[in-house]
Amino acid sequence: MTTELCNSPWSSTRIYVAGNVASIDDRNYTAAYWTQGNVPSTSSGDVNSGQPWVSGVACKPASLAAQTLDPDSNFSPATLQFLKDNTGFDGEQWNNIMKLINKPEQDSLDWTKYYGYCENIHDDRGYTIGIFGATTGGPNDDGPDAPTLFKEYDAASGASSPSIQGGLSRIGVHGSMSGSILKISDSAKVFCGKINGLQSNAAWREAMWRTFYKVYISYSVQQASQRGFDDALTVGSFVDTALNQGATGDSGSLEGLLSRSGNSSDEKTFMATFYAQRTKIVDTNDYNQSPNGKNRVKEWSTLMNEGITDLKNCDADVIKVTSWTMH
């Protein structure tokens, strides 16, 4: 029998509403209604007890990785400041967003290991590269983002007139643009070997985040903001959708899903519809192998239902919602 993981520890200052979960003394408790300052272990009972907390099963504390204990250390000072200035979210929030994104991408919460990731996963999108899966393009992707990444790398490396070719040359690989598609002329072994070698390259990491922002994050922040939403969980949900299904374009893209999610000004209500719409289409061959897509959406929707919208002080909760099996 598998022991349930503990949610993040109960806080005396946090406001909990019905459905929120917190742990204390290795047991999870679910809030029955609005409550603050009531210790779950002494203010709980069964569902009909009238107490503010409903006692759950015993749980085991989540094991926290070093990157969680000091989330700012996962970013360069320049990247951290760039993200704060342009999104309003700090290192802890972006670290949690990236953990939630990386689970269904790489089956790991240690997203920092994938700056040098490179693979042709034979999805007709060319090579997939880095922490957000930049692609070189192909029949299933006529708007790839890897060309922007290589140009940004050239810029981050000091080029006065950055170019795609300049970035490729700095890495020591060969390719050319065919319309919007970047055709790599090196073998997969050579090309991915060179990309793997950039894992700890500071300019490459900076270029990765600048590209990530330009292609996916900026649009996601804009779409949340124009609806009056400013929670890290909402923006992260949009970013995950955009990089997995495209920011704009067909009905499955972030743009398409948003158009079918209603116009509620209540963030939780809007996002419940958004998650329901995404769940309908996410497990298709174009996006995720079933049931990975539904689990991918469930990560975000569970945190939303539990009121963990700022993605702060929620390390155990993130571990818990990502403790599903990849297929």
Rank of each mutant, 00 (worst) to 15 (best):
Q51D: 05
I184P: 12
G138L: 02
P144D: 01
L311M: 12
D85M: 08
P139W: 03
T273G: 09
P52L: 02
F75V: 08
N201D: 15
S265H: 13
S200A: 14
Q81F: 02
K294Q: 11
I121R: 08
T2I: 14
M177T: 08
S253T: 15
N20G: 01
N20D: 15
P9H: 01
Y213K: 13
G249I: 08
K280N: 03
R205K: 15
G158W: 03
R210M: 12
G133P: 06
G166H: 09
W111E: 07
G175Y: 08
S265F: 11
R205E: 12
A22C: 10
R260M: 12
R296G: 02
F89R: 11
Y287F: 13
Q223H: 09
Y287D: 04
N102K: 04
T302A: 05
A202W: 04
S160F: 06
N96P: 02
H122F: 04
L182C: 10
E255N: 13
S259P: 02
G45F: 00
L311W: 07
P40Y: 01
G137L: 05
A18I: 00
G45V: 06
N140T: 05
S264G: 13
S161F: 08
Q165A: 14
C118P: 12
W34P: 00
P40F: 01
D250P: 04
G91Q: 07
T322S: 09
S265Q: 14
L149T: 13
V47H: 07
Q93I: 05
S187Y: 04
D186C: 10
N305D: 11
H174V: 10
G236A: 09
N38W: 03
S44A: 03
S8F: 01
F89H: 09
I171V: 15
A62M: 02
W300E: 07
L80Q: 12
N288A: 07
S169R: 12
W204I: 08
N48V: 00
P61Q: 01
A156Q: 15
L257F: 07
G228V: 11
G19L: 01
T79Q: 14
H174F: 11
S49A: 06
S55Y: 01
Y117H: 15
M271H: 06
